[in-house]
Nucleic acid binder design. Structure first.
Lengths: 340, 340
DNA sequence: TTGTATGCGTTATCAT
DNA sequence: ATGATAACGCATACAA
């Protein structure tokens, strides 16, 4: 109340003790302190509205409680769920997350990673997927390396060659498993709406789809269509399918949003889902649950939570990969294929 | 490459200059420096992989480039759009956002606000709505006051009595205007699905609806139903309406997600929208655009962007209110009321 | 144009 | 049980 900004020195002076004593009680040190002085320090700190400088603390202790988070776009529910997982465990441990949107641009990732490094973040969690043949990938890897030398933890949430631990969903396995589910329903001619071109995650999901179709000797009726991760892409792809009959038995989209887009196109065209055709996605967003979309639940929240825990626990930074499990969630957009 | 973590001193020594010189070139100071030394310093900094400590910088300059952001839940698109607006202008100005989810709990808001203060954030943006008769509201206001004394900018994105600038959407006006749109379509008996009970934003939107109905002498056919801001709440409210015919002419939900929930319930019940009944929401989420929901576009992104700019420009912290404009977006879930 | 010295708010080491 | 004091990494006022 008295001074606008009070430092430890002021608290100490006002309490009539030394800075060290004040520091000790305010940090909850195990150092022995008389109950009386402790009380006095706490009281004056309270009265002065003392706020310990996390900056100074981090400077002297050479370690902040900041966790950097690099997402493509926080508006995308895929990333916001991850961010939520991170923040939940971070804030519970007294850490705070620095969030940055990089819009899938590796150059921006590098630049933001540097910023996180400047802030001496305890760790940086890189959530976005990489791209095939990305010319900047090595530069990012170098930046990650420098961060690690600086004692900054780095964790990637997709399989990227960054020289840091990877905690991720099994994209290929997930795509494989929904495909298998579709097959188990009797579907044979399945169309796959791909994710954004060049993106590693897109490739993994397509690979999973194709692998499953191949294993079932169905590669000749497996069909891949260019798509994307948004409503519009799914809608467009489905429109193309509708325009060239016959329709496949089922459509699998690379993610839920595209699947809902496709679903929408089909229903607008008067096509019964799942009566005439089945539709499935990947991710299990809240939206998927709501529209009753069959999908596969990815451990997005858990990936974030585990990555944050990894940073907080300062676990080894070896380039290991942790695959978190997924689960096919059958709902109302898929049904057994009608006989004939 | 040589040392894991290099400080300015090391760069200076390696470059054969004083710390101040090194500092001057690396900060891009206007202080005159010979081209030769400048080049040398830059080169060695680069070679050493020097990363300036933003912590130390903030400590000595008494001002960080951190912006704290308090949202209810980043997974909620309402907030993620705001966060995006903030981050876009923040990162463009070299600032970084610290994000925290408070789950609509005032106590958590207070605690997180303190944390932001400990980090000497340049400013804190409080995005979530308050509640009527919130016993902790005064405490929050006090915390905001302390932050301001400390030189920390505070901006609220909803009208709350926090003693700081408010940059917000005109919730009441928005609800009023969609309602008016519905009336202009010939609808009379309109049901309003409310937001979460007690929330200020809920009240404002309901007030806007009622004000418009009153002005049209239609208060006797205006009906408010308990609801919420999610799919399920909208779905449930619509189910209740369906269970007790006759249906109203139109349904306005307190936000898009609830509106889509209602839409879904109606269509599942075989009711034609907008043939038999019109449906509208508030927010204009991407989802709304996609399903063709009539709604009113709120300046969420702009609120975030403007708030961030406010912080960066260190504008006065008076308790003024800035209302950003909204716009009714007619789409396919509303239609002129059939005669008779 | 360059260098020296001080202080930012803490923690921690070493006395007392 | 308490108190000086030296870093932490940097910017800047003041000298040269």
């Amino acid at each position: 109340m008295l001074s606008a900004v009070s430092s430890l020195v002021e608290v100490a002076r006002a309490a009539g003790v030394s800075v060290s004593t004040a520091s000790r009680v305010l940090t909850g040190s195990s150092h022995p302190i008389s109950a009386k002085t402790r009380a006095k320090v706490i009281a004056t700190a309270e009265k002065l509205g003392y706020s310990p400088s996390a900056l100074a603390r981090a400077l002297v202790s050479r370690s902040s409680r900041l966790i950097g988070v690099l997402v493509s776009d926080i508006v995308n529910p895929y990333f916001s769920v991850i961010a939520r997982g991170i923040d939940d465990v971070a804030s519970r441990a007294g850490y705070v997350t620095m969030l940055s949107n990089v819009d899938r641009r590796t150059s921006t990732e590098i630049s933001r990673l540097r910023t996180m490094r400047d802030y001496r973040a305890a760790g940086v969690i890189i959530a976005g997927s990489g791209f095939e043949a990305d010319p900047l990938a090595p530069d990012l890897a170098v930046a990650v390396g420098q961060a690690k030398e600086q004692g900054i933890q780095a964790v990637s949430l997709t399989s990227r060659d960054l020289g840091c631990p990877v905690i991720t969903a099994d994209n290929e396995g997930a795509a494989h498993d929904v495909t298998d589910h579709l097959l188990s329903l009797g579907h044979r001619r399945i169309a796959f709406i791909e994710g954004p071109p060049g993106m590693t995650t897109s490739k993994q999901r397509r690979d999973g789809f194709l692998a499953c179709m191949n294993a079932a000797n169905l590669s000749d009726v497996a069909r891949c269509l260019p798509g994307g991760f948004d409503f519009e892409a799914g809608h467009l792809a489905a429109m193309r399918l509708i325009a060239r009959p016959p329709l496949p038995d089922a459509i699998l989209a690379a993610n839920d949003e595209a699947a809902v887009g496709a679903l929408n196109a089909l229903r607008q065209a008067g096509i019964d889902v799942p009566g005439e055709i089945s539709v499935a996605g990947i991710n299990d967003l809240r939206l998927a649950r709501f529209v009753g979309l069959t999908t596969v639940s990815l451990p997005l929240y858990e990936m974030g939570a585990m990555a944050a825990q990894h940073v907080i626990d300062a676990l080894p930074g070896d380039a290991t990969t942790t695959l978190l499990s997924h689960r096919v969630i059958p709902r109302e957009t898929t049904a057994r294929r009608p006989p004939g």
